[in-house]
């Protein structure tokens, strides 16, 4: 299988869906002439023109709202947030409008829209630009939340998202854009369904649930632990809403131990939700309490030594696995 970068995988998904459906358009800051703040949309303007690759002013609430209105009336917008940190000024649009209109109208209006962009910490961009927003959006019924870690998942899930008849929060990662991975050939279309997780690595001793960027730290931790004789199974739920709880529980029933890794802060969020659901579904199979590894409970500092300390590290993940394994 060919290898491409995460950035290219996202771009391929957008391109293929725009080629397939005239109603699909891409809108956001610097998506056109600038070729994308992170070059995700490079080349799309020249292929599709200004009608369908639309640069906006810096007005997230405005263009998020435009997207929702366009989706309600028959178009299929892809709204790019330059980063998800900027979605907070459009929060009301997503919560009060995109997520609510279908039910509030008695099922009259579908809102087929994708909000996408990089989520989480980049490198040394300090607290206002380093949010992992998944806890905010996963709390809301009426929207899907997708958080792919690999290029293949990014492409297959984004294609599903663009064809989805409901609002989708699609969380990429600035530090993931350069990650390379196997992706099916261009003529082998792959749509990855929502609500289906993936086993990233098989193991019998401890389940590590990981999604988004710290999936890679979890994989590294698993490598290290294997050298010490602890075989971890890495399960990536890929979509946080809906959540493939069956796959997670199946793995935990096999390993009897579980660590949940996430980039968001420790208070609540999908990390806590996953722990809650697993302990109810697999209580009798657990040999130890489930532990969590997330970002430390502080706003992100600028200094790189501190940033590395705040984010979930390979070391903290390894320590958590050892703790639930009662190993030294």
């Amino acid at each position: 299988m060919r290898e491409i970068r995460y950035r290219e995988a996202v771009r391929e998904a957008i391109r293929e869906e725009m080629e397939a459906d005239e109603r699909v358009f891409l809108m956001g800051e610097e998506v056109g002439h600038y070729q994308g703040a992170y070059k995700v949309s490079e080349g799309l303007l020249s292929q599709f023109g200004e009608k369908r690759v639309i640069d906006t002013p810096i007005a997230e609430a405005g263009f998020a709202g435009i997207g929702i209105g366009a989706a309600m009336t028959g178009l299929r917008p892809i709204i790019e947030f330059m980063t998800w940190n900027f979605s907070f000024v459009a929060f009301d649009q997503i919560i009060s409008n995109a997520a609510k209109i279908r039910q509030m109208s008695g099922g009259t209006f579908d809102v087929p829209i994708v909000f996408r962009g990089p989520n989480g910490a980049a490198k040394q961009v300090a607290s206002q630009h380093s949010h992992s927003v998944d806890p905010f959006y996963t709390n809301i019924p009426g929207i899907f939340v997708v958080m792919p870690a690999t290029p293949r998942d990014a492409k297959g899930l984004l294609k599903t998202a663009i064809r989805c008849q409901d609002p989708v929060i699609f969380l990429e990662g600035e530090t993931l854009y350069n990650v390379k991975g196997e992706v099916p050939e261009l003529d082998e279309e792959e749509l990855i369904p929502f609500g289906k997780g993936r086993i990233g690595r098989e193991g019998k001793d401890c389940t590590i649930v990981a999604f988004g960027r710290p999936y890679y730290e979890a994989m590294q931790a698993a490598e290290k632990l294997a050298a010490d004789g602890i075989e971890c199974e890495i399960v990536d739920p890929r979509t946080l809403r809906p959540l493939d709880i069956e796959l997670l529980v199946e793995s935990v029933k096999k390993t009897h131990r579980c660590v949940v890794v996430h980039e968001h802060w420790p208070y609540g969020g999908p990390g806590a939700e996953i722990v809650d659901q697993i302990q109810r579904e697999a209580f009798d199979w657990l040999d130890a309490p489930i532990h969590r590894v997330g970002s430390l409970d502080v706003p992100m500092p600028y200094a790189s030594n501190l940033e590395n300390f705040v984010l979930p590290t390979v070391e903290r993940i390894s320590d958590a696995v050892r703790r639930v394994s009662y190993a030294k």
Binding site: K51, G69, A70, M72, N97, S105, G106, F109
Partner: peptide
């Protein structure tokens, strides 16, 4: 809401529907 008669809704957050309405107009232009 009354799609049949072109009524796109009563919206509850002050100012929240203005850009959404512009989105419906964007559709017409598109």
């Amino acid at each position: 809401f009354d799609k049949e008669h072109g009524f796109m809704g009563g919206w509850g957050i002050v100012g929240g529907h203005v850009a959404v309405a512009a989105g419906a107009a964007f559709k017409s232009k598109y």
